[in-house]
Simulated scan of single mutants.
Amino acid sequence: MDNTISQIKLSENYLQNVFLEKIAERIFSKSRALNVQLSCFLLRFDPLNQTRSNKELAIKINRQYEKQFPIDSFGGTLAEVIKKLKIEFENEMRIDRIELSGLNHGRGQPPKGQAPWEIIYKWLWKKKFSREGWQLSKKIAVFTKEQMQMVEIKSILEDTRELTLDPDEIVSTEQTLQIGKKYKFRINFQQEGYLLLLNESNRGNKYCLCPSIIYAPNTQLSLANPLEIPQANAYAKSLKFSEVGQEYFLAVITHQPFSLSWINSDRSPTDPITLALINIDEDRLKEIFVKLGQQSESQVFYKKFQVVERMS
């Protein structure tokens, strides 16, 4: 029963798991041995277990510890975890206007959604994770070479919306793109799921390419076929870059689809507001990570491209 925190870590690019592990390293830093409080924290605050009862999780811990953990002690263990979280993050929660008195363990059954663990759960995923999710994603994202490719479009039928490639399409394996040339982004992770694709420009501006009515309305990934951006039913016909510098792409693969409030498929492609829909400001970035905080085990990948004036 004496493993370390690092020994129970899951996949290193599972976004939600890594977030919880970072929290665990702070509140259990003085006692790195695996204990029931740590197990309780990782299970109770995992989005995968949000709707599961304390008893269900207690049974799971009981099995984990070969029936040496009394099921009826889960409530007390969770109360100790909440106490640690409150001590560590009290100032941050006050700034977020969390009513700390609601974290006190009182008698009786609290109203639905108002149990101390539920208050902290909402704060962790809707406030803290939404603030830290972008930087954490960039930190843990796994570099991909073959799975995310820019394909140069050698010719295009200007009188149709459909993207057409020459047989001699050129795949950018050197991670270098040229200003003014037309590209399509080929995503092929050979797994099922749903894609969130964000782009950060050399200036630090952020864009959401998928989901997007401009580039990629369909987010579903397939085992058999790559997902290509722009898609045939999107407004845009190609990707073009107008400035020299680095373009960073972050791909997040989720188990479930999710919607974003600003995406409206009814907008006309000639509407100036439509083009602004791919721009990601701080509010939209927070919304994206609030949505991701409702899911579990989302994998994170990245690819960088250098945009140049001319190919050498």
Rank of each mutant, 00 (worst) to 15 (best):
V18H: 04
L195P: 00
G113H: 13
S212Y: 11
Q299S: 07
I5N: 02
L38K: 12
P111Y: 13
L197I: 07
L209M: 03
I95W: 06
E162H: 05
L275T: 03
F69C: 08
I140E: 09
Q220S: 07
S201R: 12
Q7L: 03
G106E: 14
S53K: 10
Q175L: 01
L48Q: 12
Q306F: 13
H105R: 15
D283K: 15
I5M: 06
E228Q: 06
F19G: 10
I8L: 10
F19Q: 10
D281H: 10
Y215I: 06
A236C: 04
E174P: 01
L239K: 02
I170V: 14
R186M: 11
L277E: 14
L157N: 11
L198Y: 09
Y235T: 03
P230M: 01
E21M: 14
T160I: 02
K182L: 12
E169A: 15
Y235I: 06
V252K: 01
A276R: 14
L196F: 12
G75N: 11
L292M: 05
S242V: 01
K139R: 13
I179A: 08
E309L: 03
Q220P: 00
K83G: 04
I280Q: 03
L20Y: 03
I263K: 05
L78I: 13
V18Q: 15
T77A: 08
V300C: 02
G108V: 12
N199H: 14
G193I: 01
L196V: 13
P269A: 04
A276G: 11
L43H: 09
S268Y: 11
K30M: 13
S31W: 09
E287R: 15
E228M: 07
P116F: 10
G108A: 14
E158Y: 12
R52M: 15
N17Q: 15
L227N: 07
E118W: 12
K126H: 13
Y215G: 07
I170Q: 06
M1G: 11
A24V: 01
S259D: 11
K83S: 10
R161K: 08
K84N: 02
G293Y: 07
K67T: 09
W134S: 03
T274P: 02
Q306H: 14
F258E: 00
Q64I: 03
W134L: 13
G102M: 09
N218R: 08
L250S: 06
L260C: 07
F305T: 13
I263W: 02
T51G: 00
P211C: 01
L275C: 03
L239N: 04
R63Q: 15
K30E: 15
E309Y: 03
Y207M: 06
L239G: 05
Q178Y: 02
M93H: 11
K86W: 12
F289K: 01
